[in-house]
Structures are given as C-alpha cells and as structure tokens.
Amino acid sequence: MSVKTDWKPTIVAFCCNWCSYAGADLSGTNRLQYPANVKIIRIPCSCRLNPMFVLRAFQRGADGVILCGCHPGDCHYTTGNYYARRRMTLLFSMLDYLGIERDRTRVEWVSAAEGAKFAATMNEFVATVTALGENRRLEDLRCKA
C-alpha cells in the first residue's frame, strides 16, 4: 500500500452533549487548534453510543473513532458513563481480538471546562491514527468506490 504523503485520517469524535461537546466549543472559543479532520457528532450522553455507531463510522470511512464523555461520577444522568465505560471496554477488546488495530479506538473523559484537554486529546489521537495509516481492516470498499 502506498501511503500518500498528504493523507489525513478521518476521525469521528462522539461527544457527550453535557461535557465534551461544550469542551470542544470552549477549545474553539479559546482559539486552541485541533485538526479539521475531526468530525464531531453530538450525542446526549456517552452511553448513547451504540456499538453499531462505532462500526458504522468505520464503514463510512472513519480511520479512528473516539468517544468523549463526562468524567466518571459526573454524568448528567448519574450513571450513563459507567455503563458506556464497560461497553466500550468490551467492544474495543473484541475489535482487538478480531485483529483491528487497537489504537483506532479510544475513550477520553473531557469536562465542559477542559477545552485544552479536548484539543490536546484530539491532536494526540490524530497523530496516533495518522501513524497507523488508513483503516483497511474495517473498511467497506463500496463506500470508497
């Protein structure tokens, strides 16, 4: 596979409405830079993230998927992120088991006040995925035609 030098990964970031989505906003208003190829999808709570969404994102061309939610204990709905944490742990472990690069998936807890952390996380994640290259193992060729 020839890696094009100007290749940029597509990153889908699922962000909880009550924390990290606001955190992303904050990093914007603070003029903190994070790559434009991070596509943010707002969800009402990190536990809204159906595992199917993660797979669907990869199918439709994502090279990395990250979930950002409230810090454990701070969930707007009290316990949502605890469930999300278990689900994502098991899902990521399963993807790893199937041989999908484990660095393509990540969960990060980012509060509404942590604009800087949001930007830093995204920068770091984009760098990790860029190093991995294109998503080949969970791609759908029909979407790339």
Binding site: R60, G61, D140, R142, C143, A145
Partner: peptide
C-alpha cells in the same frame, strides 16, 4: 440497495 454516500448500488 446500498447507499454508499456518492451513489446507490
């Protein structure tokens, strides 16, 4: 049918 974004198969 499959919608791939740009086209339908």
């Amino acid at each position: 049918e499959f919608k791939s974004g740009g086209s339908v198969r």
